[in-house]
């Protein structure tokens, strides 16, 4: 099944991919790349979001959806820091079920993403920050295109070895607060070795936002993923809806 616009009879179906002109420059992605940022409480998710907002301030049209308890104080902080216009931030109430809101029942988050685009215009990148999680929380693929899992050295250098879906399956693992490693007795080489063992070829970034307030390597990874996302969107229309129960309507 094609996306709705391809049903338009006025679109000539002359190319292998109707609606896409292979000679034209790559069109902007039909929708923003959505990147989930999860991880345990206090690991630095919000600090990473702020760093990425600074990094992309003049480069990308950015929106943020937060599943954490979000106050006007937070918005004031971001505005004062010149990080992001609060109009580009949406908070989702999760009814004390932050995992459910990003994994099992993602409607409110999808609504927030739509609402951002409706009110501030087209976006290139939407960062979806989860509420404080444990190691088992992951984002639904229906909500985000990529996910970053943030742990910190203060949580102990055995966190990568413990694994859990966040550590093992996230598209990018960020080990944050590396500047604190000597103070908390965390061995970064152990964390690196365990992460490789757990994650195979999936990348891991060691980060200290105190020392790198623009989170360069994470931003670089997102740029790469964004380019890939745009190519993929340009090359293929969205997947068809899953097969469904087409019960005739009106049966009483």
């Amino acid at each position: 099944m094609r996306p709705e616009t391809a049903h338009d009879e006025s679109v000539p179906h002359t190319h292998p991919e109707p609606g896409v002109d292979p000679h034209a420059p790559l069109p902007p992605a039909a929708r923003a790349l959505r990147v989930g940022i999860g991880g345990p409480v206090g690991s630095g998710k919000t600090a990473l979001v702020a760093a990425l907002c600074r990094a992309f301030a003049d480069e990308l049209r950015l929106g943020v959806v937060t599943n954490d308890i979000y106050t006007t104080e937070d918005a004031d902080f971001l505005r004062r820091a010149g990080v992001l216009d609060p109009a580009r931030i949406r908070a989702v109430e999760t009814g004390c079920c932050p995992h459910t809101a990003i994994r099992d029942d993602i409607g409110a988050n999808l609504d927030a993403v739509d609402d951002l685009a409706d009110t501030v215009g087209p976006l290139d990148l939407v960062l979806v920050e989860s509420g404080g999680d444990n190691l088992t929380a992951t984002f639904s693929r229906g909500l985000v295109d990529r996910q970053i899992f943030v742990v910190d050295v203060a949580g102990g250098d055995k966190v990568p070895r413990k694994g859990g879906p966040g550590v093992t399956a996230a598209d990018l693992l960020v080990v944050n607060k590396t500047d604190l490693a000597p103070m908390v007795g965390a061995d970064l080489s152990v964390m690196d070795r365990d992460a490789r063992a757990r994650r195979g070829d999936l990348p891991t970034v060691f980060l200290s936002i105190t020392q790198d307030p623009l989170a360069h390597r994470v931003a670089e990874w997102i740029r790469h993923e964004l380019a890939h996302h745009r190519t993929a969107v340009a090359a293929a229309p969205p997947a068809a809806l899953p097969p469904s129960v087409a019960v005739p309507t009106g049966s009483a």
Binding site: G107, A108, L110, D111, D118, L241, P242, S244, V245, A246, V247, T249
Partner: peptide, 27 residues
């Protein structure tokens, strides 16, 4: 209406041929 929108999202994904287009309410 917000809950309606959320339910509609699920309904459209599962029963794409149901007459959800006849629902009033706009944006």
């Amino acid at each position: 209406r917000r809950q309606g929108r959320a339910l509609l999202r699920a309904g459209r994904a599962i029963w794409p041929y149901a007459p959800f287009g006849d629902l009033p309410g706009g944006a």
